[in-house]
């Protein structure tokens, strides 16, 4: 028996069922279903994965495997302002790691985590196709180019 308490509100369960139904409960559509579900909930907590597995009649281990394989999926809620630092080759060689370290220091969180006040979350991604602007940082939908470690404080200030 699962040690994780699978508790969901009826409306959330209905939403998950609605998404699964829209893909005919087809296990091969799991990735698309997870996309849509994460779009709705913002993240994919254990109980949501359990509900999807149950509806598609596949094992939770399989759902969890897909969720942890793709870096796009997350099991922790994103902050109000999700920050992504590009770690693609171009950004990396132009100092993205130092920028990332500065964000970690300023926010006191690691990659994949969210600040306790729920304001910021930190993630790294691979190439946003703006290599000319390297290193690139995304906050929500806003793009910042040629970011230096010193700019980090300034960027964060915009969202205070």
């Amino acid at each position: 028996m699962s040690s994780i308490k699978i508790e969901l509100r009826q409306e959330d369960l209905n939403k998950i069922h609605e998404i699964c139904d829209s893909f005919n409960n087809e296990p091969l559509e799991l990735i698309n279903i997870l996309h849509r579900t994460q779009e709705h909930f913002g993240y994919l907590p254990a109980e949501v994965q359990e509900a999807i597995a149950d509806k598609l009649n596949i094992s939770t281990a399989q759902v969890y495997g897909v969720v942890t394989f793709y870096s796009f999926f997350t099991m922790t809620p994103k902050g109000k302002h999700p920050i992504s630092i590009c770690m693609g080759t171009a950004c990396y060689v132009r100092g993205a790691e130092k920028v990332l370290d500065e964000f970690k220091k300023e926010l006191a969180i690691q990659v994949g985590q969210t600040t306790p006040d729920g304001k910021f979350s930190l993630s790294s991604l691979r190439c946003v196709g703006a290599c000319g602007l390297a290193p690139v940082v995304l906050v929500g939908n806003k793009t910042y180019g040629r970011v230096a470690p010193d700019d980090v404080k300034v960027i964060l200030k915009e969202y205070e």
Binding site: S2, S3, Q49, F69
Partner: peptide, 28 residues
């Protein structure tokens, strides 16, 4: 067809185990 364990994570950290890396006794 028990589905207690499956591959999770990728690359260096990839391994096979129950969902959420729980203990086996909480899996089916």
């Amino acid at each position: 067809t028990v589905g207690a364990i499956g591959a999770f994570n990728r690359g260096f950290m990839a391994a096979v185990g129950p969902a959420y890396e729980q203990n086996l006794e909480y899996s089916p």
